Computed example of a mutant assay.
Amino acid sequence: MTRPYDFPSLTDLACFEAAARHLSFKRASSELNVTPAAVSHRIKALEIELGRQLFTRQYRSVELTESGALLFVSLQRGFESISETVAKIRSRHDRTGVSIAATTAMGGLLLTPRLATFWKSHPTIAISQFIQDGGPAQGVDLSIHYGDPDLTSDETRVWFRDRILALGSSQFAEAHSIQRISDLSRVPLIHTISGANAWTDWPEWLAAMDRPPPKGPGFYLNNYLISLKAAEDHIGAVLGWEGMVSEHLSSGRLVQLVPEAMESPYPFYVRIHGQASANAKLFADWLVGQDIRDTAV
Results as ranks from 00 to 15, higher is better:
F268L: 13
T104Y: 01
V258F: 02
D12T: 09
F283K: 02
L151T: 08
T85D: 12
C15K: 04
K281E: 09
E232N: 10
L54F: 07
Q53C: 09
I190H: 06
R21P: 00
E31C: 11
S194R: 06
F283A: 02
H176Q: 05
M106N: 10
Q275W: 10
D183L: 05
R3Q: 15
L115T: 03
A18L: 13
V39N: 02
A173R: 13
A284P: 04
L257Q: 04
A276L: 07
P214Y: 07
I100E: 01
S9L: 12
I131V: 12
L109Y: 05
A296K: 15
E155Q: 12
I193G: 01
F130N: 05
A296C: 14
A196Q: 12
A116L: 11
L32D: 01
G134M: 04
E49S: 15
H41R: 15
Q290F: 06
H248P: 07
H273C: 08
I226Q: 12
T295E: 14
Q290C: 11
S170H: 10
I181G: 02
D141H: 03
I131L: 04
A166I: 09
T124D: 12
H176D: 06
A38R: 10
M262A: 01
L110Q: 05
I48D: 11
V62A: 05
R161T: 15
T156A: 00
I292P: 09
D201R: 14
G68R: 02
G107Q: 06
D183S: 05
V158Q: 04
G168T: 00
K26I: 14
W286S: 01
Q132T: 11
V34Y: 03
S67Y: 11
P188I: 02
A278T: 13
Q256R: 14
A278N: 11
I125V: 10
I82P: 01
S91A: 13
L165S: 03
E260W: 03
D12E: 15
